[in-house]
Simulated assay, not measured.
Amino acid sequence: MRPETLTGAWPVAPTPFNADGSLDLPGMSRVLDCIVDQGADGVCILANFSEQFLISDAERETLTRHCLEHLAGRLPVIVTISHYATPIVVERARLARDLGAVAVMMMPPYHGALLKGTAEQCYEQFARVGEVGIPIMLQDAPLSGVDLPVPLLVRMAREIEMVRHFKIECTGAATKLRALIAQGGEAILSPLDGEEGITMLADLDAGASGTMCSAMIPELIREVVTAHRAGDRERAMAGYTRILPAINHENRQCGFRAAKAAMVEGGVIRSEFCRHPVPPLAPETRAELIGLLRPLDPIVLRWGR
């Protein structure tokens, strides 16, 4: 692996809100401090699990500045900049670069179910962002609904210097990761998986260098990645098997509300409020989540206690 390769666990930071729905910036600082103490290799902000689609443009800039200034180099930061409009994506990339982010993450251009960039439009948007001069992580997520075949990803990696990192979290991620690495070779600097790590073992077997998970149990996820990269698949499988019920419940039942619930339970933040139209977790679902987490004794449940 080259030195610039992203490895380990890169959690997505949740965005805390006060009970009235306003941004909780002191809570945001505590979230970041908790992630540092969880031993994460880096952090991603303003992603889907940060509720980016529920945050205004002004709030995005406030959060970008706040997070990078508060961390002050303690962790490398990836800033998500996805948007359908290429000029907006470019401006977001410039801000992230100027504030010291190590990379930006972006999905292909899409808006709703019907406005989707063509292969050439996707290429052009990533090329425009590449001109800003900050490394790019391409996010291949089901949410966009945009088909990103491996030959297109390889072409972008080879022809756009800044397209270096890939977060593959589509259906059949391991198969796609294996093909991407085989066809892209050295141009694929960091092939990561996502989806909270629910398919992490298969993805690591396929060549993933790490994972972009949630901020719920990144220290335990990191242990799996570290063991696998050290060649100890048996230990990696044991760790993965231990945490999989909690990850499965997060992925299938809770979504981005899981990390917030865990952080409230552990005293990291005061409120697990999510903006309408996102409903709160059902009490039974929340109780099941905490019940699955407690035997794991994760940092998040004792950080603020």
Rank of each mutant, 00 (worst) to 15 (best):
P3V: 02
W10M: 11
V12K: 00
T15Q: 12
P16T: 08
A19V: 10
D20R: 01
S22V: 03
L23W: 09
D24V: 03
L25S: 00
M28C: 03
S29W: 02
D33W: 01
V36P: 08
G39M: 12
G39D: 14
A40C: 13
C44D: 06
L46D: 06
F49Q: 13
L54P: 00
I55W: 05
A58F: 07
E59A: 11
L63P: 09
C67K: 06
A72I: 01
A72P: 03
P76Y: 08
V79D: 00
I81E: 04
P87S: 12
V89T: 02
V89I: 00
E91Q: 14
R92Y: 13
L95G: 01
L95H: 00
R97K: 15
A101Q: 00
V102L: 06
V104G: 02
M105N: 05
M107S: 05
L115Q: 13
G117Q: 10
G117P: 04
T118H: 06
Q121R: 10
C122Y: 01
E124T: 09
F126T: 01
R128L: 11
V129L: 10
V132A: 03
I136R: 02
I136D: 11
Q139A: 14
A141N: 03
L148V: 09
L153I: 11
M156C: 05
A157D: 10
A157Y: 09
V163N: 04
V163H: 07
K167R: 08
I168M: 15
T171W: 08
G172V: 06
L177C: 09
A179R: 15
I181T: 03
A182V: 03
G184H: 04
G185P: 02
A187W: 03
S190A: 08
P191T: 09
L192V: 04
E195Q: 13
T199K: 04
A202W: 10
D203V: 05
A206N: 12
S209T: 15
S209C: 14
C213R: 12
S214E: 01
A215S: 15
A215M: 07
V224N: 10
R229T: 15
A230E: 15
G231S: 11
D232Q: 08
R235F: 12
A236H: 07
M237A: 15
A238H: 09
Y240C: 05
R242Y: 07
L244D: 11
P245E: 13
P245Y: 12
A246Y: 12
A246E: 05
N248A: 15
N251A: 15
G255F: 07
R257H: 05
A259C: 04
A261F: 00
V264R: 08
E265Y: 01
E265T: 06
G267N: 07
S271T: 05
F273Y: 12
R275T: 08
A287K: 07
G291N: 13
R294N: 06
L301T: 13
G304F: 10
G304N: 11
